[in-house]
Write a protein that binds this DNA or RNA. Structure first.
Lengths: 206, 206
DNA sequence: GATGCTATTTTGACACTGTCAAGATGTGTT
DNA sequence: AACACATCTTGACAGTGTCAAAATAGCATC
């Protein structure tokens, strides 16, 4: 038995090589070019140089494909958040500020990916894949842990860690959404809005 | 010349009566039944008892129709917010609390309508109708005025009224979005989350 | 009242979408 | 070499938004 036989990844040498990965790459490119709503499986297959229905052997559904892309986004975001939280050269306040600003910046820099990660199409009803949930929930959990630690350290206001996390997450998510959905027209102010949010949540020393 | 000739409304006695209104009603019914993403103009026309392309003489576009529904939502929300703000029997703190809770409740009670009002499909690029902008912008402006007044009265923290408004709006929008998009699974906690947000924003007297 | 103008509605058509069923083709194993 | 299986293709279907042209109904004017 081959060494990589029990893994589903890295299986080159087939008809196309590794079509699953190629499809994901092409999909991200197409989305970056024309937005999610303009992504069709047929255009995607065309871009990848295969037939219309070829993707269906690697993704059960269009939704399945979108979930896979969203999962990549969660992994990236989780990595970034964890890196700053574990950076020993930063104070707790700096970490909190970077969490807020970094969150909003992530959404602003990858609007289509963020839209996918938190779009209603994926989460409403039972559309989310097991893979997506497996990577998204730890991401949510990590946010709770970080905010809990900052609250216990007396850095930010409030008493109930879960509720506070839900509010702060709501804040950054809402700011991000208003921006990338085109309701805040002015993206130049977005850093200032993040800074204002930080000031509002940090417990005043005076 | 007829008395109502210079108005575009209330023109009964035509083929259908007032199809524009009937289409709006039917659209809201269909959306309530199966969600926005399951609304098609053909099903809508069928529900209204007309041909597939009949709606195109009352709405230039599917987007135009959705904007009209969204505009109705903004009018309702604006009315509600204004009523509580002008209620003389409430204290400033009660008004602020009701603004937060009322906002989230509005979204929770009318998820599909809220999704439409703030969906990216409408606001991204130049898709928003003039009518929609004419009713939505005063709504945003009103929020700024209310929050400015509460901030000047020393009720809530922060110094820059515009930034504070953007943060607080982001917070309620984010909480609403996380709920109605199915990411917060537990809708029973939503009132508690709103209350936590209120506590975080209100300036502590101690 | 007949005629013509215009608002309204319909039928037909087109390009596009997601997805299924069957067949064809390549790849690895026995 | 033969088989099993993964992979890919072709064909098809129902559905979508929207345009063009034809049909119909209401109103105003002569």
């Amino acid at each position: 038995m081959n060494s990589a036989a029990n893994l589903k990844v890295v299986r080159p040498g087939y008809h196309h090589g590794d079509l699953r990965q190629a499809l994901l790459m092409a999909a991200k490119a197409l989305i970056a070019e024309a937005g999610i709503e303009n992504l069709s499986l047929r255009k995607l297959a065309d871009r990848a140089g295969v037939s219309r229905t070829a993707p269906y052997h690697h993704f059960t559904d269009k939704n399945d494909l979108l979930c896979a892309i969203a999962a990549q986004g969660f992994r990236r975001r989780y990595q970034g958040a964890q890196d700053t939280f574990n950076d020993p050269s930063l104070t707790a306040e700096e970490k909190f500020a970077e969490f807020i600003c970094g969150y909003v910046r992530f959404a602003a820099d990858n609007p289509e990916e963020y839209e996918l990660m938190f779009g209603r199409n994926i989460w409403k009803q039972k559309n989310s894949t097991q893979e997506l949930r497996d990577v998204a929930y730890p991401c949510f959990q990590h946010q709770l842990e970080m905010i809990t630690s900052w609250q216990e350290a007396g850095l930010i206001s409030g008493d109930n860690p879960l509720r506070t996390t839900q509010v702060i997450w709501g804040t950054v998510h809402g700011i991000a959404k208003l921006l990338i959905d085109g309701i805040y027209t002015d993206s130049a102010q977005i850093e200032e809005v993040s800074l204002c949010a930080i000031k509002l949540f940090i417990k005043k020393a005076s």
